[in-house]
Simulated scan of single mutants.
Amino acid sequence: MPDPHLRAADADRAAVAAQLGEHMAAGRLRVDEYDDRLARAYAARTYGELAELTADLPRPVARQTGPAASTPAPWAHHGIAHAGSWGGWSGGPSRYAAWRNWLATAVIVLTVWIATSIGSGELLYPWPIWVIGPWGAVLLAQTIASNRRDDDEHRRLT
């Protein structure tokens, strides 16, 4: 793990948040404990602050196979598993889950906008664009970057 006084990145905070969610789902954290730790994770500035949030929890188990499986997860001995950018955005099921969440949110906000427009009798300002537009742009950029990383990794391994 990097020195505890060094600044943590958004990806580090998101990775700890994902790890806390897994521990809550496993029953190691109560909902109120999870909420408190999650708020502290996103407010954390340093690796030391992040490490405190998972110090009393078991380390994550590496789920990789092949040559990379023998390499321990970075910072695993301090309870922080760096799972790629944006808390596990490295492809696979999480990539599709992010798009499903975006789509579900888009449907909800568009439904609310349409219902309020119909209820008012006039076409209201299209505010859902500010919810789904930037989020969709970020997801698209991450998908493209992830696909490029996957291609680079495939070329490197072959």
Rank of each mutant, 00 (worst) to 15 (best):
33 E>W: 05
101 N>Q: 11
82 H>Y: 11
49 E>I: 08
88 G>I: 03
103 L>Q: 07
52 E>M: 07
31 V>S: 09
87 G>T: 10
39 A>P: 01
105 T>F: 00
99 W>S: 03
33 E>V: 10
90 S>Q: 08
75 W>Q: 11
83 A>R: 14
58 P>I: 09
111 T>M: 10
71 T>M: 12
69 A>I: 12
104 A>C: 03
64 Q>V: 04
93 P>N: 08
101 N>A: 14
111 T>A: 14
100 R>E: 09
57 L>F: 10
89 W>S: 14
44 A>N: 00
78 H>L: 09
40 R>E: 04
62 A>M: 08
118 I>S: 02
101 N>D: 09
55 A>V: 13
67 P>T: 10
84 G>D: 07
42 Y>D: 04
84 G>N: 10
83 A>S: 10
97 A>P: 01
77 H>P: 01
32 D>Q: 09
87 G>S: 06
81 A>Q: 06
31 V>R: 11
75 W>V: 03
84 G>F: 01
98 A>D: 07
114 I>E: 02
65 T>R: 11
88 G>M: 06
93 P>A: 15
81 A>V: 15
36 D>L: 15
88 G>K: 06
86 W>M: 03
70 S>E: 15
49 E>P: 01
118 I>C: 06
115 A>Y: 04
118 I>L: 15
108 I>S: 06
58 P>W: 13
110 L>G: 12
98 A>W: 06
71 T>L: 12
75 W>F: 12
49 E>D: 05
40 R>Y: 00
41 A>P: 04
51 A>P: 01
63 R>S: 11
76 A>R: 13
104 A>H: 02
